[in-house]
């Protein structure tokens, strides 16, 4: 028991430590694909270091929400991390504290407070971005729900550790239309939630076009660092759910030996790297959608997820 709790904390350290690297590798690769040199992969660490050592400026209009939001945004992905398989194949100590729905709600909580904080300061660009994030948010949430329900139809459970073992049981389950449609819907969700290119431009610094970035506009110093780090961790956590639960639950540690858990780290980083390559291809080959096309993009994700649900209900012979 004590060992599994320790491993759970170790997972937290993994997510904390590698989230900036993930962001760094992604931006470096993206620049390389566009034949630019790009910043070092360690740049996000340096940014965080720099921000943590700077003074913080807070608007005199701001309330406690503005001060509390960065901590929430930072902590919420860590909560979710303790519920999902990041390094191990078997449930760890906190795995049964909540299911995938709980994870989704936790992430939504962080997003909610970040949006409130953006409205809090009275900066005109903040509320604009916040309302856009909410628009993306409420279009994303039904898709999340349907994806989780479809998963629970197939796996009879919404605990990620159990779901992950059901998908790869047989090639029939892996190649079933429900699974493939679900993967596509979830990938579209990751793009929308992470503020990646068809929905939002993560490198854009033009206030009028921002969606996700605008939440952190008013933060400086430690607050900005926590918001940044939290956002990177959220993206890593979503990637881990996609890869370890839905797409490719291979290469995880299968027993309690600490050596095997250490060995799982490079294999997971390799999986994430391959995924990043695909993500970079998507990002460089697509243009950012116009704001009102986003509802179509997420509408398509919704339709695909519902189609996955129909396919899983009908092909399993429930009806």
């Amino acid at each position: 028991m004590a060992q599994t709790i320790l491993y759970n904390l170790f997972q937290l350290l993994f997510v904390l430590g590698f989230a900036p690297l993930y962001a760094g590798v992604m931006s470096k690769l993206k620049e390389n694909v566009q034949s630019k040199r790009g910043p070092s992969v360690l740049q996000p660490y340096r940014d965080l270091w720099k921000l943590f050592h700077k003074d913080e400026v807070v608007s005199s209009e701001a309330t406690w929400i503005f001060r509390a939001a960065p901590y929430l945004v930072f902590v919420v992905p860590l909560f979710v991390t303790s519920l999902i398989p990041v390094l191990t194949d078997y449930p760890l100590a906190f795995a049964f504290m909540g299911d995938m729905l709980a994870g989704g709600f936790f992430l939504a909580l962080g997003g909610f407070f970040a949006a409130l904080a953006a409205v809090d300061t009275g900066n005109p660009y903040g509320p604009m971005g916040a309302s856009r994030t909410r628009m993306v948010g409420f279009l994303v949430e039904p898709v999340f729900m349907i994806v989780f329900f479809t998963v629970s139809f197939v796996a009879q459970s919404t605990i990620p550790y159990i779901v992950q073992q059901k998908w790869v049981a047989s090639p029939t389950a892996f190649f079933s239309p429900a699974h493939i449609l679900l993967l596509i819907a979830f990938l579209m969700l990751i793009l929308a939630e992470g503020g990646r290119i068809p929905v939002d431009n993560p490198t854009g610094h033009f206030e009028l076009a921002m969606i996700d970035e605008s939440k952190g506009l008013e933060y400086s110093g430690r607050g900005a660092a926590l918001m940044k780090w939290g956002g990177q961790m959220k993206f890593l956590v979503l990637t881990c759910i996609f890869l370890n639960v839905l797409l490719a639950p291979w290469g995880l540690a299968t027993d309690l030996q600490f050596g095997h858990i250490l060995l799982a780290i490079p294999s997971i980083l390799l999986k994430i790297f391959l995924f990043t390559l695909n993500l970079v291809m998507i990002e460089t080959s697509l243009a950012k959608l116009r704001l009102f096309r986003i509802s179509e993009f997420l509408g398509a994700a919704f339709i695909i997820s519902v189609a996955a649900m129909i396919a899983s209900i009908f092909s399993s012979g429930v009806v």
Binding site: A173, S176, P177, A178, L181
Partner: peptide, 11 residues
């Protein structure tokens, strides 16, 4: 499995 995959992609 492959058949079901191709059918899903058709849809």
């Amino acid at each position: 499995g492959l058949n079901a995959l191709a059918a899903g992609l058709v849809l």
